[in-house]
Computed example of a mutant assay.
Amino acid sequence: MIPWVELDRAVVPDGGGELRLMQRGTEFSIMADRGIELMNSRLSGSEEALATLAWDRIRGRAQPRVLIGGLGMGFTLRAALAVLPADARVVVAELVPAVVAWARGPLAPIFAGSLDDPRTQVHEGDVAGVIAAAEGGFDAILLDVDNGPEGLTRAANDALYDAAGLARAAAALAPGGVLAVWSSAPHARFSAALAASELSAEEVRTPPRRGRRGARHVIWLGTKPR
């Protein structure tokens, strides 16, 4: 078996530990502390579904504005660009600058030019700040941050998923806009918080690999009233 090779390490701000970029042949992995895998280049199905499920709920809007929280390996960004119209704008907020550098370096074949798409704007910083400043400016907010509501790296990310965080996300959405949240596993407390928010709640289970059986990731969708 081909061994994993460590390509780089990056520190997550605010005590979030380290990320490691690993490669094994043509396969890439981003791992957190204790060898916990956050994403893998062979597992893109649910990250793509995060974008397509959200688009299904805002389809037909002129000049849609989309915020993606967490760049990762770019699967959500690529899926969003594949379905969004030419007049869309996509802001990708990534907290760790090295992840953006990886996207333009060893992971560039996976990103397939998506960072250079004229619709794409990369914001190196916390997605929470973008949400707080949006004031109804986004038609969709897609969050794939810290493995979901059950965070693994950075305690500050918890504020995205509590009642106050959901209220801030709702305020950042245009009427009829959608908040989509990715998670590696179910999370009863977040499900309850979303159900109690002003957003109408849906929960979708989706496989890490398209068309495969077995484990399911979770995507929550909260739509703002018109």
Results as ranks from 00 to 15, higher is better:
63 Q>P: 00
61 R>C: 04
66 V>M: 13
74 G>A: 09
91 V>G: 09
50 L>W: 00
64 P>H: 13
87 D>T: 13
59 R>C: 12
49 A>W: 00
66 V>A: 08
87 D>C: 10
58 I>C: 04
87 D>G: 11
94 E>K: 06
71 L>A: 07
74 G>K: 07
94 E>D: 12
55 W>H: 14
90 V>P: 10
75 F>R: 10
74 G>C: 09
87 D>N: 14
47 E>L: 04
49 A>L: 01
49 A>G: 07
81 L>G: 03
45 G>I: 01
66 V>E: 11
46 S>R: 03
48 E>D: 11
49 A>C: 10
84 L>N: 01
49 A>P: 02
73 M>G: 07
65 R>L: 08
57 R>Y: 01
84 L>G: 01
89 R>S: 15
88 A>L: 07
59 R>H: 14
80 A>V: 08
42 R>V: 08
94 E>V: 08
51 A>T: 05
56 D>F: 01
49 A>Y: 01
72 G>L: 04
62 A>Y: 09
77 L>H: 05
76 T>W: 00
83 V>T: 06
53 L>R: 02
65 R>F: 10
77 L>A: 02
79 A>E: 08
93 A>D: 07
43 L>I: 11
48 E>P: 04
84 L>R: 06
79 A>D: 07
83 V>I: 10
60 G>E: 02
50 L>S: 01
68 I>E: 10
91 V>A: 11
93 A>E: 05
43 L>C: 11
66 V>I: 15
65 R>W: 11
54 A>P: 02
63 Q>S: 15
84 L>M: 09
81 L>Q: 05
45 G>K: 03
72 G>W: 08
76 T>S: 14
92 V>N: 08
84 L>I: 06
43 L>K: 15
78 R>W: 01
84 L>E: 01
89 R>W: 14
47 E>R: 01
